[in-house]
């Protein structure tokens, strides 16, 4: 399979590599290893350079994420309002530790460092939607809501 058609319009942009990774991840949910040599060829870069950029940034995934991606803020403002306890609760209730996807592929749990919602902490992002003042009880309700939608 060729991935080039996903991003061919971006190739001639200056500094195209990040926009290309974002595009592929937006469409496929991750950036497949097999896409890297193609991108290197298209941009006239070495495979090492492309791999280096891919692995430098926290955002880019090399494997598909779960159906629901939950990011919990670990930064100071959220810590001040109990994000450590929230993370513990989330790991238990989702049945998966931070940085990983549950066995049934339903949810990926990741840390993030500031979502810019520091006055309404703890903050969580669920499938790209920002949530504030997330207590463990509200977390359960939000997860139930998203799982209900997924079904």
């Amino acid at each position: 399979m060729s991935y080039t058609e996903l991003y061919s319009d971006l190739v001639n942009q200056p500094g195209a590599l990040l926009p290309i990774f974002h595009r592929i991840q937006e469409r496929l949910g991750y950036v497949p290893e097999a896409a890297l040599p193609e991108i290197a060829h298209q941009l006239n870069l070495s495979r090492a350079e492309v791999h280096g950029v891919m692995s430098f940034y926290h955002d880019f995934r090399s494997a598909p994420p779960g159906k629901t991606v939950v990011k919990i803020c670990r930064a100071e403002a959220c810590q001040a309002m109990g994000s450590d306890a929230l993370i513990e609760h989330a790991e238990k209730c989702l049945g998966t530790p931070m940085h990983s996807t549950s066995e049934d592929g339903s949810v990926t749990l990741e840390p993030t460092y500031c979502l810019g919602n520091c006055a309404l902490s703890p903050a969580v992002m669920i499938n790209g939607e920002l949530k504030g003042r997330v207590t463990p009880e509200r977390f359960d309700a939000l997860i139930a809501e998203v799982k209900g939608v997924a079904k």
Partner: peptide
């Protein structure tokens, strides 16, 4: 950007805009 705090440093930001680490 792509989730790298260091890209708030201006020269790292420029590198990132150029498509690099």
């Amino acid at each position: 950007g792509a989730g790298a705090y260091i890209c708030g440093e201006e020269t790292a930001l420029l590198e990132s805009l150029e498509g690099k680490r």
